[in-house]
Nucleic acid binder design. Structure first.
Lengths: 245, 245
DNA sequence: ATTCCTAAAACTGTATACGGATACAATCTC
DNA sequence: GAGATTGTATCCGTATACAGTTTTAGGAAT
């Protein structure tokens, strides 16, 4: 009997790992993150329940959680993927500008080999994607790059908050990276960041992240500005055809 | 027919206001925010259900939501009010340092009469509380002051994020403001902020908020340092007596 | 007295059922 | 034919019931 007393009030945390709710939650969140569902698509608990072979409850809890975290918005008629307004996107960018430089600087001080390799690989992917004008590949590389350094941020609250905000603007990036010029901007930003990360230079990482975010935001809004009329035109059409599974 | 088409896909959002889950959620959140429940207190859904005269479901959903937002942590044996470690508190302070100055600066540009009155009243309250060495009153004044300007932040995502982080460190402030020196620090900070707000000077508000947060953080950690041994001693005792309703 | 084992209690997670609200459509009125 | 009205399907919120798991407690054996 070495130390039985130490474990006496353990109370195992997080009992509800691998519950059905959790599984459905992560599954659905992934879909939203990867933009596999269009804005204004409606999730209905009973449909999801039958899809996953469960009752309504786990599906419902997953949907409520997603709605609470902002991935979905609750309506009287199901849970909907939100269509972000320009102001929404501006708000998201503002918060990200405040958080990401500091977080990245912090991560730069705690990189291990694994993280460095992941970032280098992501950068290579981004280069290839830019060469081949492959928007989807670019998006994935971009996500991988961020994930790599975000994992090394010590302050988990900070990292999680960033992750959530990024997710909410995810649908945005999908659109912007379709454009050649944006891909160039992003690739240059990643290269610049990468070299600073490799030098483990927090100040430099901070500054370059500031520049990167500003460039990305500019690129987005300049693109968006030009196609504002188009979307307005298409709006009335897309509203009429209702998706139904 | 001016624009009947515009309203055609209205779909009222947020159907589930004033549901039982919501009511219980806000009720419980208030208790946690005001620190009316001690850390490591356990909420059990069935107890809450009977307390509010409902079934388990609404109580359960409220608890899940609170856990998801970090107000509670889920265990195998109910939902527990977390006891924050020093590192946790450091993390919260870091995020707040990043967000609050900018948010306050933004709010300074959009103050209306109502907000100004609220802030002035809160400052008066804080002065009185400091004079009379009333820690609780100081806490409430401090909260009221923040609420006043936070309501005027245009970026709701930013404001909500701050609100949540503040809440999580709430238990902390309850402790720190028990100390005379901290109350002085906070009062001076509020005065300084208040005058900058009244001049609608965003730069000044930003700078003073930076200073304020740094001072508050220093005050907290210097106090906490001195009583670290005490809490460590009491730990073993407090773990044995289990609260039961 | 201490340790080990077994059984009940406590709580969570999931399933099923029902009532109520809302959107949509079809019918009716002017 | 346009607008009001009633009917119906859809979907959410809540209640109740049950199953699975973890903790606690009690008793037997050492």
């Amino acid at each position: 009997m070495s130390e039985p007393q130490a474990e006496h009030t353990t109370i195992r945390h997080l009992s509800r790992r691998d519950s059905l709710s959790e599984r459905i939650y992560f599954e659905l969140r992934g879909k939203v993150q990867r933009s596999e569902v269009a804005p204004e698509f409606r999730f209905v608990d009973v449909d999801i329940a039958t899809e996953y072979g469960t009752s309504r409850m786990p599906a419902r809890e997953a949907l409520l959680r997603l709605a609470n975290e902002g991935y979905l918005v609750g309506t009287t008629r199901g849970f909907m993927v939100p269509r972000l307004s320009l102001d929404d996107i501006r708000d998201v960018f503002e918060v990200r500008r405040l958080l990401e430089p500091r977080a990245a600087a912090n991560a730069a001080q705690h990189l291990d080999n694994q993280a460095e390799q992941d970032m280098s690989r992501a950068l290579q992917e981004a280069s290839l994607a830019a060469e081949r004008h492959d928007a989807n590949r670019m998006i994935l590389a971009n996500i991988a790059f961020r994930q790599a350094w975000l994992a090394k941020v010590r302050n988990r609250r900070l990292a999680d908050t960033i992750g959530r905000f990024v997710d909410h603007a995810q649908t945005v990036r999908l659109k912007t990276l379709q454009t050649e010029s944006t891909r160039t901007v992003v690739l240059n930003g990643l290269k610049s960041l990468h070299s600073a990360f490799m030098r483990h230079d927090p100040i430099s990482v901070n500054d370059r992240m500031v520049a990167f975010m500003a460039a990305a935001e500019d690129a987005f809004f300049s693109i968006r500005q030009t196609e504002l009329e188009d979307t307005a035109d298409r709006r009335s059409l897309s509203q009429n055809k209702r998706e139904k599974r």
